[in-house]
Amino acid sequence: MEKTSFELFAMTASAIWMRRNKLRLGENSIPLGQIAASAFDALKEFQQLRPTHAQIPRTARAVRWRPPPESCVKANFDGAVFSQVGLAGIGIIIRNEQGLVMAALTQQIPLPASVEMVEVLAARRALVFAKELGFDRVVVEGDSANIITAVNGRIMDLSAMGHVLLDIKSLSSCFSFISFQHINREGNCVAHKLARQAANFPFLVWMENVPPDAFEVYQLDLLRLQ
C-alpha cells in the first residue's frame, strides 16, 4: 500500500507539473479538478503493464536514476551515432532534487571520428546547457565510464578528445559545485531517448517538459524514486 501511495503521488506531481507548463505556454490542458482521476488512471495502466518487466534481472532493476543532492540539479547526457547519414546525436535532461524536469535538449552534430568523441562532446554540451540556464550547482551524469574517468582524471589527455576535456575542465570552474558521475545505461534512458531524437530533429529544447517519445521512461524514473 505504501508503494502504491508513493506511485500515485509521483503521477499526480508529474501531472500538475506538466499542466503548469502547458498553461504557461498557452496550450490546452486538463482541468485542475480532473488531475487526481487522470493520475489514478495513468497509474492503473502502468501497473497493468508492469508484469511485462517481471523477467528483468534483479541487478538490472537495481540500476535506476537517482536525484541530485538538495539545492543541486542533475544533468544526464548521452550520445547516439547515425553512421549511415554521417551524423551523431546529443541528448541532455536536467532534473531537480524531486526528479522533475527543468529542461531537455536534443541536438544533431557532424559525426566525429569515434563513439567516445560523441560522448565527450555530449558531456561538454551538458555543461554549456546548464550554464546557459543559470544553474550553479550541477551533477553531470553519463553512461560512458571512460569519459567520466577521463573528465575526473588529473593527467593531461593527449588524445584527439584532449582539447574537449580541457574545455570541460574550464567550464567546470563556472559552477560553485560540480560533480561528474557514471551510471549504467539502464539509469540513463531518458538522455538516451533524447539523443536518438536527434535523428529527426537537428536542435530542440524543451523547458520543464520532455518530448512524447521520452515521456514514458521519464515517468518510470519518477515512479522508481522510493
Rank of each mutant, 00 (worst) to 15 (best):
L165N: 10
H182A: 05
R137P: 01
A145F: 08
P112R: 10
S172T: 03
I109W: 12
A126H: 04
V139M: 12
A113I: 05
A104S: 14
A150K: 09
G162L: 06
S170H: 12
I168L: 13
L171D: 14
F129Q: 09
E116K: 13
T106K: 10
C174L: 06
R124A: 04
A150D: 08
S176M: 06
F177A: 15
L166M: 14
V140Q: 06
A122W: 08
H163T: 07
R125M: 07
V140I: 14
R124G: 02
C174Y: 14
F180R: 00
L133F: 01
Q107M: 13
A130T: 04
S114I: 02
A145D: 07
H182Y: 15
R137H: 08
S172A: 15
I178T: 08
H182L: 05
M161S: 12
V139K: 09
V120M: 06
A113T: 13
I109L: 08
R124M: 07
I155Q: 15
R124P: 03
S144C: 15
H163W: 09
H163D: 14
C174G: 02
V140E: 14
V118M: 10
L165A: 09
G142P: 07
P110N: 05
A126S: 15
K169W: 15
L158P: 00
R125Q: 11
A150R: 07
V115R: 08
M161Q: 14
A145W: 11
E119A: 03
P110A: 06
A130S: 15
L127F: 05
M156N: 12
S170G: 07
N152P: 03
T149W: 05
S176G: 11
R124W: 06
E119Y: 09
E116A: 09
F175V: 03
A160P: 05
V120S: 07
V140K: 04
M117K: 14
H163Q: 08
H182C: 04
H163L: 11
E119I: 00
V140G: 01
F175S: 01
L121T: 09
